[in-house]
Protein backbone atom coordinates (compact mmCIF):
# COMPACT_ATOMS: atom_id res chain seq x y z
CA UNK A 1 0.00 0.00 0.00
CA UNK A 2 1.25 3.45 -0.78
CA UNK A 3 0.99 6.71 1.05
CA UNK A 4 0.87 9.17 -1.82
CA UNK A 5 1.13 12.90 -1.30
CA UNK A 6 -2.02 13.37 -3.29
CA UNK A 7 -2.53 16.86 -1.95
CA UNK A 8 -0.42 19.20 -4.05
CA UNK A 9 1.99 21.74 -2.62
CA UNK A 10 -0.34 24.58 -3.48
CA UNK A 11 -3.22 22.86 -1.75
CA UNK A 12 -1.11 22.24 1.32
CA UNK A 13 -1.03 25.98 1.92
CA UNK A 14 -4.77 25.84 2.36
CA UNK A 15 -5.01 22.62 4.24
CA UNK A 16 -6.28 24.23 7.41
CA UNK A 17 -9.29 25.64 5.63
CA UNK A 18 -9.93 22.43 3.75
CA UNK A 19 -9.74 20.33 6.88
CA UNK A 20 -12.34 22.53 8.52
CA UNK A 21 -14.61 22.07 5.54
CA UNK A 22 -14.16 18.31 5.58
CA UNK A 23 -14.48 18.08 9.35
CA UNK A 24 -17.81 19.83 9.19
CA UNK A 25 -18.89 17.37 6.56
CA UNK A 26 -17.90 14.56 8.86
CA UNK A 27 -19.96 15.99 11.69
CA UNK A 28 -22.99 16.16 9.46
CA UNK A 29 -22.49 12.58 8.34
CA UNK A 30 -22.21 11.37 11.92
CA UNK A 31 -25.32 13.25 12.87
CA UNK A 32 -27.15 11.46 10.08
CA UNK A 33 -25.80 8.12 11.14
CA UNK A 34 -26.99 8.58 14.70
CA UNK A 35 -30.51 8.75 13.47
CA UNK A 36 -30.15 5.31 12.03
CA UNK A 37 -28.21 3.50 14.72
CA UNK A 38 -27.85 3.65 18.45
CA UNK A 39 -24.37 4.99 19.23
CA UNK A 40 -24.26 3.57 22.75
CA UNK A 41 -24.83 0.13 21.37
CA UNK A 42 -21.85 0.52 19.03
CA UNK A 43 -19.50 1.64 21.81
CA UNK A 44 -20.14 -1.53 23.76
CA UNK A 45 -19.33 -3.70 20.73
CA UNK A 46 -15.90 -5.16 20.16
CA UNK A 47 -16.15 -4.68 16.43
CA UNK A 48 -17.11 -2.00 13.92
CA UNK A 49 -18.75 -2.37 10.55
CA UNK A 50 -17.54 -0.26 7.66
CA UNK A 51 -18.57 -0.09 4.03
CA UNK A 52 -15.96 -0.87 1.38
CA UNK A 53 -16.24 0.52 -2.14
CA UNK A 54 -14.43 -0.97 -5.15
CA UNK A 55 -13.93 1.09 -8.28
CA UNK A 56 -12.78 0.40 -11.83
CA UNK A 57 -10.19 -2.38 -11.98
CA UNK A 58 -10.63 -3.17 -8.28
CA UNK A 59 -14.30 -3.86 -8.95
CA UNK A 60 -13.48 -5.97 -12.00
CA UNK A 61 -11.05 -8.07 -9.95
CA UNK A 62 -13.34 -8.60 -6.95
CA UNK A 63 -16.60 -8.78 -8.84
CA UNK A 64 -18.32 -6.52 -6.29
CA UNK A 65 -18.91 -2.78 -6.23
CA UNK A 66 -19.35 -2.49 -2.48
CA UNK A 67 -19.70 -4.62 0.62
CA UNK A 68 -19.89 -4.36 4.39
CA UNK A 69 -16.78 -5.32 6.39
CA UNK A 70 -16.67 -6.10 10.09
CA UNK A 71 -13.33 -5.55 11.85
CA UNK A 72 -12.30 -5.36 15.52
CA UNK A 73 -12.69 -1.96 17.17
CA UNK A 74 -9.48 0.03 16.78
CA UNK A 75 -8.59 -1.56 13.45
CA UNK A 76 -6.69 0.55 10.94
CA UNK A 77 -7.28 0.89 7.23
CA UNK A 78 -4.22 -1.35 6.80
CA UNK A 79 -5.91 -4.03 8.93
CA UNK A 80 -8.99 -3.70 6.76
CA UNK A 81 -6.93 -4.15 3.61
CA UNK A 82 -5.33 -7.33 4.93
CA UNK A 83 -8.78 -8.74 5.52
CA UNK A 84 -9.95 -7.60 2.08
CA UNK A 85 -6.85 -9.10 0.39
CA UNK A 86 -7.48 -12.43 2.11
CA UNK A 87 -11.06 -12.37 0.90
CA UNK A 88 -10.09 -11.30 -2.63
CA UNK A 89 -6.55 -12.57 -3.38
CA UNK A 90 -6.87 -11.38 -6.97
CA UNK A 91 -6.86 -7.79 -5.68
CA UNK A 92 -3.17 -8.24 -4.82
CA UNK A 93 -2.49 -7.88 -8.56
CA UNK A 94 -2.90 -4.14 -8.10
CA UNK A 95 -1.96 -4.01 -4.40
CA UNK A 96 1.19 -2.06 -5.16
CA UNK A 97 -0.57 0.88 -6.71
CA UNK A 98 -3.94 1.31 -5.10
CA UNK A 99 -4.58 4.12 -2.66
CA UNK A 100 -7.32 4.38 -0.07
CA UNK A 101 -9.91 6.99 0.73
CA UNK A 102 -11.69 7.07 4.07
CA UNK A 103 -14.95 9.01 4.05
CA UNK A 104 -14.06 10.61 0.72
CA UNK A 105 -10.57 11.74 1.68
CA UNK A 106 -7.23 10.16 0.80
CA UNK A 107 -5.74 8.54 3.90
CA UNK A 108 -2.57 6.97 5.18
CA UNK A 109 -2.64 3.32 6.17
CA UNK A 110 -2.54 3.98 9.88
CA UNK A 111 -5.94 5.68 10.04
CA UNK A 112 -8.30 4.02 12.48
CA UNK A 113 -11.70 3.16 11.07
CA UNK A 114 -14.88 3.88 12.96
CA UNK A 115 -18.30 2.37 12.74
CA UNK A 116 -20.14 3.22 9.50
CA UNK A 117 -17.00 4.64 7.88
CA UNK A 118 -16.70 4.36 4.10
CA UNK A 119 -13.42 2.94 2.81
CA UNK A 120 -12.84 3.27 -0.94
CA UNK A 121 -10.28 1.23 -2.88
CA UNK A 122 -8.84 3.64 -5.46
CA UNK A 123 -6.92 2.03 -8.34
CA UNK A 124 -4.82 4.37 -10.51
CA UNK A 125 -7.15 7.08 -11.68
CA UNK A 126 -7.60 8.11 -15.30
CA UNK A 127 -9.94 11.06 -15.42
CA UNK A 128 -9.66 13.76 -18.03
Amino acid sequence: MLLPPLISQTERHQIVGIRVFFAMDGVNREANNREKIDETEIDSKSSVEIRVLFFARARDLTGVADMPLEVPTGSTTQDCMEKIFSQFPSLKDIGGCIVLALNEEYVVDSAIVRNRDELAIIPPISGG
Binding site: F55, Y106, P124, I125, S126
Partner: peptide, 27 residues
Protein backbone atom coordinates in the same frame (compact mmCIF):
# COMPACT_ATOMS: atom_id res chain seq x y z
CA UNK B 1 -4.63 18.37 -10.65
CA UNK B 2 -7.81 16.73 -11.88
CA UNK B 3 -5.77 14.10 -13.67
CA UNK B 4 -3.54 13.57 -10.63
CA UNK B 5 -6.04 13.29 -7.80
CA UNK B 6 -9.73 13.30 -8.73
CA UNK B 7 -11.18 9.76 -8.47
CA UNK B 8 -12.46 9.27 -12.01
CA UNK B 9 -11.57 6.27 -14.17
CA UNK B 10 -11.68 5.63 -17.88
CA UNK B 11 -11.78 2.35 -19.73
CA UNK B 12 -10.59 2.52 -23.31
CA UNK B 13 -12.60 0.19 -25.52
CA UNK B 14 -10.96 -1.09 -28.71
CA UNK B 15 -12.42 -3.21 -31.45
CA UNK B 16 -10.69 -6.24 -29.92
CA UNK B 17 -10.55 -5.55 -26.20
CA UNK B 18 -10.47 -2.95 -23.47
CA UNK B 19 -8.10 -1.51 -20.87
CA UNK B 20 -8.34 0.63 -17.75
CA UNK B 21 -6.17 3.67 -18.34
CA UNK B 22 -3.81 5.12 -15.72
CA UNK B 23 -2.85 8.80 -15.60
CA UNK B 24 0.89 9.33 -15.37
CA UNK B 25 0.14 12.38 -13.18
CA UNK B 26 -1.34 10.04 -10.56
CA UNK B 27 1.47 7.48 -10.78
Amino acid sequence: ELKASVPIWKKEVYENGEVWKENCEFL
